[in-house]
């Protein structure tokens, strides 16, 4: 090439090897972008509320015994407080002991494999290792009794009618799942609406 000449601006046709390389680069780039978008979606949705249902967090966790709330609440009409006995008395609602289950299940439900599992637990004197569905961070103190009492007195309803405010319609769930995000925003909004204290030491100490 002589000085002052311009190189040809017409691109030469890339050879086959370059085409393949560019194709692979483009595809990996697009895949990477898609991955970043999915991760961002997950993080942002989990930050704002609960992770998007497409990630499978919509369903509750598998429990050691498939316990249908529907059978007990809808068909038998049991009150929430019949099993969760401490909910009107103390901080935690408590999961019933195997013994309480066995008051009925020594005679009821001979045909079910799940109830056989329950009887095995009882025979071995072992507690059932339920998977926790609603978990607040360690630095949060929540008291069930105070909330149940306030709402049942305010709205003149049964204690068991208050539960759905935070837990959703558990009686309708085959598998218990978390309905509300239960972030601090939920707590504070409700506390403001009800003129409850919003001082930090109400819950954090």
């Amino acid at each position: 090439m002589l000085p002052g000449d311009f190189p040809s601006i017409i691109p030469t046709k890339p050879n086959r090897k370059d085409m393949v390389r560019l194709g692979v680069l483009g595809i990996t780039g697009l895949a990477g972008l898609a991955l970043v978008v999915i991760i961002l979606l997950f993080v942002i949705s989990a930050w704002l509320g609960r992770p998007l249902s497409m990630f499978g967090y919509d369903e509750g966790p598998d429990q050691p015994i498939v316990f249908p709330h529907t059978t007990h609440v809808q068909e038998l009409g049991l009150d929430c407080t019949f099993c969760h006995r401490n909910v009107t008395k103390g901080a935690s609602a408590t999961v019933p002991s195997v013994g309480l289950c066995m008051t009925c299940h020594t005679v009821v439900g001979d045909e079910s494999a799940e109830i056989e599992k329950l009887r095995d637990y009882h025979a071995q004197s072992e507690p059932i290792d339920w998977v926790r569905v609603h978990r607040l961070p360690d630095h949060v103190r929540f008291n069930h009794q105070a909330h149940i009492q306030y709402f049942s007195e305010k709205n003149n309803i049964l204690p068991s009618a208050v539960c759905a405010t935070c837990h959703g319609d558990v009686g309708n769930m085959k598998k218990v799942r978390q309905v509300e995000p239960l972030k601090m925003g939920n707590c504070v909004d409700c506390h403001r609406d009800n003129n409850a204290p919003t001082d930090c030491t109400t819950c954090h100490y």
């Binding site: 961070p137 630095h139 001082d199 930090c200 030491t201 954090h204």
Partner: peptide, 15 residues
């Protein structure tokens, strides 16, 4: 750390 309405000097661990 702040002062609450009950005269307590509060330390909020999560903050």
């Amino acid at each position: 750390t702040y002062h609450n309405s009950e005269g307590l000097n509060v330390q909020v661990y999560n903050r």
